[in-house]
Structure formats: C-alpha cells, structure tokens
Computed example of a mutant assay.
Amino acid sequence: MLVAFATESQTHIDAHFGLAPAFALYDITPEAITSKGIVYCPQEFAPDADKEDKVENRMQILRGCAVAYCTSIGGPAAARLVQSGIHPLKVPEGTAIEDELKRLQTLLAGSPPPWLRKRLQQEKMMKED
C-alpha cells in the first residue's frame, strides 16, 4: 500500500497538505516498509495562484496512494482526496514519519479499521486482475 507524508524536513510530518513542499512516499505491507523517495510539489507562490490547481497538482503527485498524512487540510481539499480514493489523515505537527510507518504496519498486520480494510481489499482485487 502506497502512503504519503506531507513534509518539510523529510523525517517528520510537518506540513499542511496545501502548503507542503514535498511528500515522502512509502510502500508498506505487514512484512516490509520500502521508501519510494521524496516527491517535490510545484511551488505556487503567486498571490493569485488558483487553490483548485494547487489541490489538483497534489492529487496528481499522490495518484496511487491509499493514505496521505498531513498536519492540516481544508475541508474541500479533503473531500476531493477522498473522492479520488486517497484517505487524508491529520496528525500533530512534528510526528515522526518512522513512528507512523510502524503504527500503520502494526495495523496492517492486525485488525485494520474498516476504511483501511476496504482499501486493502480493493488493492488485492486490482492485483488479481
């Protein structure tokens, strides 16, 4: 399962979804965690930058991810992520990416919550096709 973390430091979840300069990507299974690298976001510095474009750019970067961790995310952006099949999760700023990876791996190996179980079943079906 592909997971993204909004990050400035590349070691902690320390960015708002819409302002994140980068996302750290990891493939995670109950048996292994594999880094897929850091993906940098285009910087929309213009004061009149379209917020819709910013969200769309990030959704394109995160295509294929099951979960996107961030410190904060606006309601419309969260709804768009969910519609595209990405589950946004807010965590306290400064949460270590490594800690969340281990926590998620433990969930995968045990009894995942319903939303995660559904996503895992979808991914399993896609692999079988």
Rank of each mutant, 00 (worst) to 15 (best):
M1V: 09
L2P: 06
V3Y: 10
A4W: 07
E8Y: 01
S9K: 08
Q10Y: 14
Q10V: 04
Q10I: 03
Q10N: 08
T11F: 05
D14C: 02
D14S: 02
D14P: 02
A15C: 04
A15G: 04
L19V: 00
A22V: 00
A22M: 07
A22Y: 04
D27P: 00
D27A: 13
P30F: 11
E31M: 11
A32S: 15
T34R: 15
S35H: 06
S35E: 10
K36H: 14
I38V: 15
V39Q: 15
Y40G: 09
P42R: 15
P42N: 14
E44L: 15
F45R: 04
A46M: 07
A49I: 02
A49H: 03
K51L: 06
E52V: 02
E52K: 01
E52F: 00
D53T: 15
D53V: 15
K54H: 04
K54Q: 14
V55E: 00
E56Q: 11
R58H: 11
Q60D: 12
Q60P: 03
Q60G: 11
I61V: 09
L62Y: 05
L62A: 06
G64Q: 06
C65K: 07
C65W: 01
A66V: 08
A66E: 14
V67S: 08
C70L: 03
T71Y: 13
G74V: 08
G75H: 12
G75I: 12
G75N: 11
A78P: 03
A79P: 00
R80I: 00
S84F: 00
S84P: 00
G85H: 07
I86P: 11
P88Y: 03
P88L: 01
P92T: 05
P92I: 02
E93G: 12
G94V: 08
T95P: 06
A96H: 12
E98G: 02
D99F: 07
L101S: 02
L101Q: 10
R103G: 01
L104V: 04
T106C: 05
T106V: 10
L107G: 01
L107Q: 14
L107M: 14
L108Y: 10
A109H: 05
A109F: 05
A109V: 01
S111C: 09
S111D: 14
P113Y: 06
P114A: 14
W115H: 09
R117Q: 13
L120Y: 06
L120A: 12
M126R: 13
M126E: 13
K127H: 12
K127N: 12
E128L: 14
D129C: 08
